[in-house]
Design a protein around this nucleic acid. Structure first.
Lengths: 207, 207
DNA sequence: CATATACGGAACTAACGAGTTCCGGATACC
DNA sequence: GGTATCCGGAACTCGTTAGTTCCGTATATG
């Protein structure tokens, strides 16, 4: 037996019966995906990182593509609890508060995952849909709520193009990180709000 | 030791073309790259599309990575002729005119090439630099000129963040195409100018 | 025409990764 | 304790692709 001595290596966590390794494997897949991209990712990497065997992965997913699809789709699960949303009374306050809420902006890995699959998106409608729903839509949803509130309280004109406003923030962030390779810090995000988003929403900012 | 030019006539070609296939091969590489992404692209695809042999490709570039690097860098060559730049007298006029200038906005393939190499950018600083210079900088350069003109003629405040303004347009386009999978038409670009860029530049647009 | 050179294309090697199979051992449940 | 499962991991098959080598040919030059 080339294995570790089993009488001593036993205190390992109690093995669970069903297919409970799924979350760890998907999480490992997302890690590898964000670091190496879709094509650079191998099932061996994923299995190793999840301290699992390649066979275990294939017992659950029939192919690499399905694993990735499933893993991406599961990123959505970090749902937004509507009660967690800040409500500061002003649009700027809400937007600024949002960038301090980690559960909402946990974007670092999401962005890298996105980068790892962009080239696939044009070729796989299924993956595109999953990415759309898991990575793009949540951000837009939160923004939509803020802008609708601002409209309701008369803070911004009712005829603004909300969909476009929702896109500005994510677009600037994605472009900076993925295309320009610049890190995104809080100052950058606040600048985006004050210099771009609010003016586009019709709010004049003092300069 | 180091070769200085000796008989210039001797090392001359034996066939009609010395290495004149280079442009076709690089162009084919960009086509394949934009269609299949970096990992999906094979040297055989490139050679076939360029009606060349794989050996011909490797006679000129020592690896796939170098070919891609070179091809991306050469996209810059579609230089902007400063005399071609519209000068309409207003910032909006200039920006709108630009989206009608194909030589400047020939962005379709560039964007797809970008999509094909994003996942590599984080791992290859050289490729990142080449992409930056060939795909990102030209757009920003043109924008910078327009904004500087607008500042000079007092159309917009002198203390606007020009760098940020330059980024808005490309960011919105890239995000729409790559992340949302939406086609970009002229209306979308004009909307971006009127609803986002000009307000951010401090120009109040009638709504 | 003779020669040198670059080309297209095909055949080849070597490496790598997806997906499969098998087995010893650990676990839960009775 | 006995047993039916599930897991980790190693060893395997098989297709694909980067990169190489070789050869027949086209062409410019003299």
């Amino acid at each position: 037996m080339t294995q570790v001595d089993q009488t001593e290596a036993k205190p390992r966590l109690g093995r669970k019966r069903d297919h409970t390794r799924d979350p760890e494997i998907m999480d490992a897949a997302l890690d590898v995906l964000s670091e190496s991209g879709y094509d650079g990712m191998t099932i061996d990497m994923v299995a190793t990182r999840a301290k699992a065997g390649k066979a275990t992965v294939y017992r659950r997913w029939s192919s690499k593509a399905e694993l990735v699809l499933d893993a991406v789709a599961c990123m959505k699960s970090s749902e937004i609890d509507l009660d967690d949303l800040p409500d500061t009374g002003t649009l700027r306050g809400d937007l600024v508060a949002m960038i301090r809420t980690p559960s909402i902006r946990d974007g670092e890995r999401k962005l890298k995952v996105m980068a790892g699959i962009v080239s696939m998106i044009a070729r796989s409608p299924e993956l595109a849909a999953a990415a759309q729903e898991a990575l793009v839509e949540p951000r837009a949803t939160v923004n939509r709520i803020f802008f609708q509130r601002a409209i309701d309280r008369g803070e911004i004109p009712a005829d603004v193009d909300v969909e476009k406003l929702c896109i500005i923030g994510p677009a600037l962030v994605a472009y900076s990180v993925l295309m320009l390779g610049r890190p995104v810090d809080r100052d950058f995000l606040v600048e985006n709000i004050d210099q771009v988003i609010l003016p586009a929403a019709g709010i004049r900012t003092e300069r």
